[in-house]
Amino acid sequence: MDVIVSVKELVKTYPGGTVALRGVSLKVYRGEVYGLVGPNGAGKTTAFRIIATLLKPTRGSVVVDGVDVVSDPLEARKRIAYVPEEVGGYRRLTGLEYIRFIVSSFLSASGREELVDSVVEEAAELTGLSMSVLSGKRMGEYSKGMKRRVQVAWALAVKPRLAILDEPTTGLDVEASYELRELIRDYARSRGVTVMLSSHNMFEVETVCDRVGLIRGGVLMEEGRPAEIVERFNARSLEDAYMRILASRGRSSPQ
């Protein structure tokens, strides 16, 4: 299988001195949905920001689809769609204007301008929002869930080599998170989009992800298919396994 993301010995020390990652190595294969789980402050967002070229690693390397994200960030960005943890949206743009801006920026960088119209249309559909909302209202008026749908929709519709979704369902209602999970699972899988996501919802991870990495205190502690991990710890569910792992190695984070 093709390796899409290769993270090696990743260390990140923030300017203030906080060590957020202490030598994380992992691989994500083409078409996979990879979930990163772990307590608050474990280093998930830090890892995603480094992969998405926003932060520079202190040590270690990240290669996405054959491109080193540190030495060639612009080339790497053509392959990665990143949806950060905190949902945002340009207040003064309508959802549709926003989607068009992002999609055309993304596609024109890799010379795929001719696809813009169809991808915008597709993304608009993936949001599940009505046209009256998408083109009639500015994003300043959108709820958090609506913004999140818009963000995830473009990130999948542009069919990047890698979509990074940091806590995509946090704060969404039951129905919206259900739909989003379906979207990630079905749409991404059928289009061959590789996804890295993080979540605090073990049920979600268990149902959506092909493989899971459990990170704590900047260290990757366990990795494998959800079913494998459940079996390994003789647990009832992934959540159960997660609790056992944390309990067996000390609850508090090593900071």
């Binding site: 920001r49 998405a52 070229t53 926003l54 612009l74 960005r77 053509k78 990665i80 769609a81 990143y82 949806v83 950060p84 905190e86 949902v87 945002g88 949206g89 340009y90 207040r91 992002i102 920026s105 993304f106 960088a109 890799s110 963000q151």
Partner: peptide, 18 residues
């Protein structure tokens, strides 16, 4: 400031724009 206030800076910076 708006990029940060609207929580869009990270998205903008992660796009393949020079």
């Amino acid at each position: 400031g708006a990029e940060r206030e609207e929580r869009m800076f990270e998205v903008l910076l992660s796009l393949p724009i020079r």
